[in-house]
């Protein structure tokens, strides 16, 4: 402790000035670390973070104000329970559910599948507990490839299934459900619930098998594939429901739609 006794500026004992100050504080009974002590990889929240937040908020508010000046919120004629518009559509963020509703049982499409999906999403951190890859988009380059593959796969399968069922007959489970009902005397729920569930599970299973075969994924990477499947399904089905479903929920091009939905 000889250094501490030295005069300031006369420090030649191999201990640098900063350490000397800290030792002095220890002797004087002060805290070692002050709130303003910054580590190498740290910055002060004021101004470094606050300025980012302020700029984000101002830029966004400017965009929102400009949009609100230029584009008016829709207000159609007064609600009339006796006049059903064709097509009738749910708010856009539920149109993915309405799209599924066209192909299967309403309870399955509107309640069971979304509930299972949200429950599964909430359970993710209790299944994947490995801390690897935190803070890195997609965990690794392999993870990012899985995201790309799952995105393409989900989009192609969904669009393909919608088009195929439209060609065969909507709500017939590609003709399987209607065949069971018409020729085998099976009740309607066999097609709309059992066959539909099998088709959905089959698509998910195909994604899992494909990713497993190609990438030999970890738990995290497999969950990335499944989450991407959900994420893309939400937007793709919503996009079909918003922009490609016209009167009688017929598939048509966006510019042929009779009513603009917001």
């Amino acid at each position: 402790m000889a250094e501490i006794a030295q005069q300031p500026g006369a420090n030649t004992g191999g201990i640098d000035e900063q350490k000397r100050q800290k030792l002095l504080e220890l002797v004087r009974g002060r805290a070692l670390a002050r709130p303003t002590d910054l580590a190498e990889d740290e910055v002060m929240v004021w101004p470094s973070l606050v300025v980012v937040e302020a700029v984000c908020a101002v830029v966004f508010l400017a965009i929102l104000t400009a949009l609100s000046v230029l584009v008016n919120a829709p207000l159609l004629e007064r609600a009339n329970p006796n006049q059903t518009p064709n097509p009738s559509k749910a708010p856009w963020y539920f149109l993915n559910l309405q799209e599924m509703l066209l192909h299967m049982d309403a309870g399955l499409a509107g309640v069971i599948i979304p509930t299972l999906a949200l429950g599964g999403i909430a359970a993710i951190p209790y299944i994947d507990r490995s801390p690897l890859g935190v803070g890195i988009l997609g965990t690794s380059s392999k993870g990012r490839k899985i995201i790309a593959l799952a995105t393409v796969f989900t989009t192609v399968v969904l669009v393909g299934m919608v088009l195929l069922e439209e060609a065969i007959g909507r709500g017939t489970q590609f003709g399987m459900g209607s065949w069971l009902m018409d020729t085998q005397g099976a009740p309607a729920w066999v097609g709309s619930i059992v066959i539909s569930s099998l088709i959905v599970l089959g698509a998910i299973f195909a994604l899992v098998v494909m990713v497993k075969t190609i990438y030999r994924p970890t738990t995290r990477e497999l969950i990335i594939a499944l989450f991407t499947g959900f994420f893309i399904t939400y937007w793709v089905l919503g996009f079909i429901g918003t922009s490609f479903r016209g009167p009688e929920q017929q598939l048509m091009m966006p510019w042929d739609l009779p009513l603009v939905h917001h």
Binding site: E77, Q83, A90, Q98, V111
Partner: peptide, 16 residues
């Protein structure tokens, strides 16, 4: 309480 609101909620509540 326009046609858009009324029928969107009709469809939405039918889903629920």
């Amino acid at each position: 309480w326009d046609q858009l609101a009324f029928w969107a909620i009709t469809v939405g509540s039918e889903i629920g």
